[in-house]
Computed example of a mutant assay.
Amino acid sequence: MTTAAVPSPSLRAQRLVFDGQLTIYDAGVLKTRLQAALEQAGDGGLELDLDQVSEIDTAGLQLLLLARRESRRLQRPLRIVAASAALREVVGFCRLGDFFGETLPPDARD
């Protein structure tokens, strides 16, 4: 799994792009990157581009749940701006579309 911070079309937000697997094997590193990105995001918040996530397991899902909870705690917006089929499948299976609310692209909600 790789991540990259890229400029967001929204000038106020920071965007983090994930590419590859979002699984237990990379969970520790990804947790650190997500928390740092949230803390640095400022008032514009953080956008997650998960379009290139090829596989996600429960550890990856837990990271996204943690990111959502931390964004609320820090009072910083968190949005998922793109979601892969793998992510949509897991979110739908776990019926977590409502938990993420408006942060999920419309086709990822169940």
Rank of each mutant, 00 (worst) to 15 (best):
residue 3 T to A: 01
residue 4 A to T: 14
residue 5 A to Q: 13
residue 5 A to I: 14
residue 5 A to H: 11
residue 6 V to D: 03
residue 7 P to I: 14
residue 8 S to H: 06
residue 10 S to Q: 13
residue 11 L to Y: 06
residue 11 L to P: 12
residue 12 R to P: 00
residue 13 A to H: 03
residue 14 Q to L: 15
residue 15 R to K: 13
residue 15 R to Y: 06
residue 15 R to I: 03
residue 16 L to V: 08
residue 18 F to G: 03
residue 19 D to G: 10
residue 21 Q to S: 15
residue 22 L to A: 08
residue 22 L to Y: 07
residue 23 T to C: 11
residue 25 Y to R: 14
residue 25 Y to I: 09
residue 26 D to G: 15
residue 28 G to W: 00
residue 31 K to R: 14
residue 33 R to L: 12
residue 34 L to D: 04
residue 35 Q to H: 13
residue 35 Q to F: 10
residue 36 A to F: 01
residue 36 A to L: 14
residue 37 A to Y: 07
residue 38 L to F: 13
residue 39 E to V: 10
residue 40 Q to S: 10
residue 45 G to Q: 07
residue 48 L to M: 02
residue 48 L to W: 03
residue 49 D to V: 10
residue 50 L to A: 06
residue 50 L to I: 08
residue 50 L to E: 02
residue 51 D to N: 12
residue 51 D to R: 14
residue 52 Q to L: 09
residue 53 V to F: 12
residue 54 S to H: 04
residue 54 S to C: 07
residue 55 E to D: 10
residue 57 D to P: 03
residue 57 D to Q: 06
residue 58 T to E: 06
residue 59 A to R: 04
residue 60 G to H: 08
residue 62 Q to N: 13
residue 63 L to E: 04
residue 63 L to Q: 01
residue 63 L to Y: 10
residue 64 L to H: 01
residue 65 L to Y: 05
residue 66 L to K: 05
residue 67 A to K: 01
residue 69 R to K: 14
residue 69 R to T: 10
residue 70 E to A: 15
residue 72 R to I: 10
residue 73 R to G: 00
residue 75 Q to G: 04
residue 76 R to Y: 02
residue 78 L to T: 04
residue 81 V to K: 07
residue 81 V to P: 00
residue 82 A to D: 00
residue 82 A to P: 01
residue 83 A to G: 02
residue 84 S to Q: 04
residue 87 L to H: 00
residue 89 E to L: 12
residue 90 V to H: 03
residue 91 V to H: 05
residue 92 G to L: 04
residue 92 G to P: 02
residue 95 R to N: 12
residue 96 L to Q: 06
residue 97 G to R: 12
residue 98 D to A: 10
residue 98 D to M: 08
residue 98 D to I: 09
residue 100 F to G: 03
residue 100 F to N: 07
residue 101 G to N: 08
residue 101 G to W: 08
residue 102 E to P: 08
residue 102 E to L: 13
residue 104 L to D: 05
residue 107 D to A: 15
residue 108 A to G: 06
residue 109 R to D: 09
residue 110 D to R: 14
